[in-house]
Design a protein around this nucleic acid. Structure first.
Lengths: 344, 344
DNA sequence: CTGAAAGCGCTTACAG
DNA sequence: CTGAAAGCGCTTACAG
């Protein structure tokens, strides 16, 4: 007796047809039963599942994708892999999605909207079941691609202004509010000359800048010469450079709010090197609460952003959408926390 | 006239059949021409390519995968996303692979060999064209999966002992040599009581430990009580803790070699907090040259590992393998550099 | 060098 | 609730 009578294909793969034959039902029924489609006799479901398990049947994703025009891939677009922020997002989303049976297709845009568009085009070929995309600032072509593809999409990290785009799904927090909140905290501590130092200058960084501006304007302390905007990529080293520049050119500054923790950490290390006392002479604040910020000397005051949670909640919202259901809220605000440590 | 006479399918998608019809050749020929198969009339290739471009034809990956039993996915398995080391690997590999038309399927194993096995099983369902996998320490089931799948595979970050596994493709460096080299450098600087502090304790960390041991044994300075091995995940905070422990319990130690830079950075920050002078009282060395190590105070002496290069070269080797060719060398040693800074 | 035909392994209207 | 049939869009022996 040859066991292979159950399965006479060359590949050795157990197919849906094998399960159907063994269970004594049609392939259609196996397909429906296994996908949990309603309107299949519970007894049959039971039988099909049993046989399927016994034979060790696993559906072929390619065949499924071809027939249904929808794969089990979920595409995710992030700007960079060199910023832990986005890696945390990716990690959390990927974990949630995998648990639900989806494979993550990652794309790195390098903050380049045409690269983003090209990447999306490629990913769309795989007919992803869903799409996760960082930010709200896609170019027109990309927006069209998303709309036309009909693929459910959730945006990460930011929220639109109220009134606009009610139909855009997103999970994040108000960057502008976070920028204002940290600035206000510094003002409440009695700081009068608060600089804003930023790199990369992506749309979310700009929002934080606007928050800083509005808080200072409200306090009648806005001084445009205290904006230090550098389009270069964010890094520890650049933070040190910016810090030194500011201290040299604006010695009266009594606080510096950096748009990202790596810059602020670099500033703290530069302060140690230069013998500048933080926070006595100048307060230093960061953004994101990245690894190491709590270990710095002095420990860094920063804004803790719920990026892992954003990744997870966005993935869950996407899952809902992919099931054809409507999430209770199209926009989810996960907020942020001001973490006061010793650097301010 | 309706342009859609060229294409009467509901999906609106331009298919290979559309190209064949328009070019006046058979689908087989289009398929062959587009995949650059030898033995197609150059004139026909020309014609097919032109028509294909004009119609904007893009092959459907799912159909291709189903028919050919091979997708354009490349699976990559890494332990963690929270260690920049692996993210650098992923980033470089992904970049190289994408340029060659492949989509990266990432799997995060959490240093768990049965999770690794499960992940690989899932990835194999997508019939990847190639596989990149961190380390050489897969469990038996995983090894069998790889072998049976016939999918070309390249291992990352480590090299096998000479003599064994000539048929295992890998790109990395000798972890044991790197461990010994850093230890010898410390000894050459006149250090006599060199501790080794490690976390995570994955196979590569253990190799570094063996390198440290052998160097100290050779110098007749080996002291087993100077091994600080902690299985917890590596982090800045843990580095600080280990540093404090060692200094308290082994005050005579004059150098500490940490198995990873995050630990060493944490140690440096702890030293600042505790008022312990580095390198005067104790030298501190790390491993990997991660972001920020050059910015520390004092700047961290470490082993620079060519992880981005490893990711790229491994991807290139995999590409060769996927084309059915044999790479000139099955094992590529990319070496490492000792970076002497101020902490030693 | 080229084509007709079968097949990859599923899903999904369409009937019943 | 179930099944027969067509079809998803390619590739690949097999002939010629």
């Amino acid at each position: 007796m040859n066991i292979s009578i159950k399965n006479n294909r060359a590949s050795g793969r157990v197919t849906l047809a094998d399960v159907a034959r063994t269970a004594g039902v049609s392939p259609s029924t196996v397909s429906r039963a296994l996908r949990g489609e309603r309107s299949v006799d519970p007894a049959l479901i039971q039988r099909v599942v049993t046989v399927s398990d016994k034979l060790g049947y696993v559906p072929d994703p390619a065949a499924r994708a071809l027939a249904s025009q929808r794969s089990n891939h979920v595409a995710i677009l992030i700007p960079l892999l060199s910023n832990t922020l986005f890696v945390d997002l990716l990690d959390a989303a990927q974990k949630t999605l995998r648990a639900a049976g989806y494979q993550t297709l990652m794309g790195v845009t390098h903050y380049d909207s045409s690269e983003e568009e090209q990447l999306l085009r490629e990913q769309l070929l795989h007919r992803p079941a869903g799409l996760l995309i960082t930010g709200l600032d896609q170019n027109t072509a990309t927006q069209k691609l998303i709309t036309r593809s009909q693929v459910p999409c959730v945006h990460l990290m930011d929220l639109p202004d109220p009134g606009h785009t009610e139909h855009t799904y997103c999970v994040g927090f108000k960057q502008i509010q976070a920028g204002a909140a940290m600035t206000n905290m510094l003002l409440n501590q009695g700081r009068k000359r608060v600089a804003f130092a930023a790199a990369q200058l992506d749309p979310r960084v700009m929002q934080r800048l606007y928050g800083w501006r509005s808080a200072l304007r409200e306090a009648q302390l806005y001084d445009p010469t205290l904006e230090w905007l550098n389009p270069a990529p964010s890094s520890l080293a650049l933070g040190g450079v910016l810090f030194e520049q500011i201290m040299k050119q604006k010695p009266a500054v009594d606080a510096i709010f950096f748009c990202n923790d790596d810059l602020a950490q670099g500033a703290l290390l530069a302060a140690l090197r230069l013998g500048i006392s933080v926070p006595r002479q100048v307060a230093v604040a960061g953004f994101n609460d990245l690894t190491g910020s709590d270990q710095m000397l002095p420990a860094l005051t920063t804004v803790r952003t719920p990026r892992a949670q954003i990744g997870q909640v966005a993935a869950e919202m996407l899952l809902t959408l992919m099931h054809g259901e409507t999430p209770p809220h199209a926009q989810v605000n996960l907020g942020f926390d001001i973490i006061e440590r010793q650097s301010t």
